[in-house]
Simulated assay, not measured.
Amino acid sequence: MKSPRRTALIVIIMLLVVGIVGGFFAHHQLAKNRHHERIVATTYAVVQIADRLKLPLVGVPNTENKLPARYKNVTKVGSPMNPSAEKIASVKPTAVYSVTTLKEQFGKSFKQQHIKPYFLNLQSVSDLQRVVTKMGNQYDRKAAARGANREIDHAILKARKRANGQKKPRVLVLMGLPGAGYMIATNRSYVGNLVQLAGGKNVFASKDQEYIQPSDEAIQKARPQVILRLEHAMPQMVTEQFNSEFKSQSFWHQTPAVKSKRVYDLQEPDFDATANMHAAKALGEVSQWLYPRGK
């Protein structure tokens, strides 16, 4: 007859073996599930995040931007503003990602195809970092996510040092709209957030609005010292619109920014309406524009 002590030892060993084997199979199953992830990115910003985390994609947006080599032959699912529910459904996705600012673009056709997109909040640099961390955890890319966020943290620290002890410049941010003029981007917009991180003062602040209607009188009164012109869609057309606007409207000539030639054009891929993986580089550029004689 076996002693109680020996019996207990045998039971413990068996439990350990079962635990190890169970853990192995659980890990194997998790890895298998991740291997079968079929992810669709409907915006270029999401494509950038996926590329940085080395995630496989089965669907990417139609874009004029150069797609990473790993996604060269991936199915195009339409423009970010008007993605095709039929094309997305055809690749049998397990996850479809867009951004919160385009949520209204996903209408009835997606419900009919039984597609429920995930909308990522990329309205600020900190929002971007939270998304990168979350996706890194979800898809077992934690090391890559930490590396990406460290680059951004370093850029923020560098921008703060550059602005330290200096008087904040007054900054006006404009977002050009192809064929429809422009809007004013407030501190709640992504570029407005870059201005804030770089140590500038956005002359148009808001509690909840990213963009507001322009007012010639308000712009004149604000007397911006730096003007940033975002040309994220059809940049050539928007640049021509801005140049024509600044030439034909005499009030622009009276702004300190135009007088001192501190008007800068922001274009993709470094700049966009939403935060992206070029955030560190974009912040560095804005920092230098705001503080050309920085520390």
Rank of each mutant, 00 (worst) to 15 (best):
S3K: 14
V17I: 14
G19F: 15
G22T: 13
G23N: 03
F25R: 15
H28Y: 14
H28K: 15
K32E: 12
N33F: 07
H36L: 00
E37H: 01
E37P: 06
I39F: 02
V40R: 05
V40M: 06
V40D: 04
T42C: 13
T43A: 06
Y44L: 03
V47L: 04
V47W: 01
R52Q: 15
P56I: 00
V58R: 08
P61T: 01
N65I: 01
L67T: 09
P68E: 02
P68R: 02
Y71M: 03
K72V: 05
V74F: 12
G78W: 10
S84W: 00
A85E: 05
K87N: 06
K87G: 03
I88A: 01
V91K: 08
P93T: 02
T94I: 03
A95E: 12
T100W: 04
K103A: 01
F110H: 07
F110A: 04
H114S: 08
H114V: 01
F119M: 03
L120G: 11
D127R: 09
M135G: 09
Y139P: 11
Y139C: 10
R146C: 09
N149L: 10
A155M: 14
I156P: 12
K158E: 08
R162G: 00
A163L: 13
N164H: 14
Q166H: 14
P169H: 01
L174F: 14
A180Y: 11
A180T: 06
M183R: 14
I184N: 04
A185T: 07
A185Y: 08
N187E: 08
Y190L: 12
G192A: 02
L194Y: 10
V195D: 01
L197I: 08
L197H: 05
L197D: 03
A198M: 04
G199N: 06
N202A: 10
K207I: 07
I212Y: 11
Q213V: 13
P214E: 07
S215L: 14
E217Y: 11
E217G: 05
E217D: 12
A218F: 12
A218L: 15
A218Q: 11
I219W: 01
Q220I: 00
A222P: 05
P224Y: 10
Q225T: 11
R229V: 15
E231K: 12
M234K: 15
M237T: 15
M237Y: 09
E240D: 14
F242D: 10
K247F: 00
S248Q: 13
Q249D: 14
W252G: 00
H253G: 13
S260V: 02
K261C: 08
K261P: 08
R262A: 10
R262M: 04
V263L: 03
D265K: 13
Q267P: 01
E268H: 05
P269K: 03
P269I: 00
D270N: 11
A273C: 11
T274M: 14
M277E: 13
H278E: 11
K281N: 02
E285V: 11
Q288V: 10
L290Q: 08
L290R: 04
L290F: 08
K295D: 12
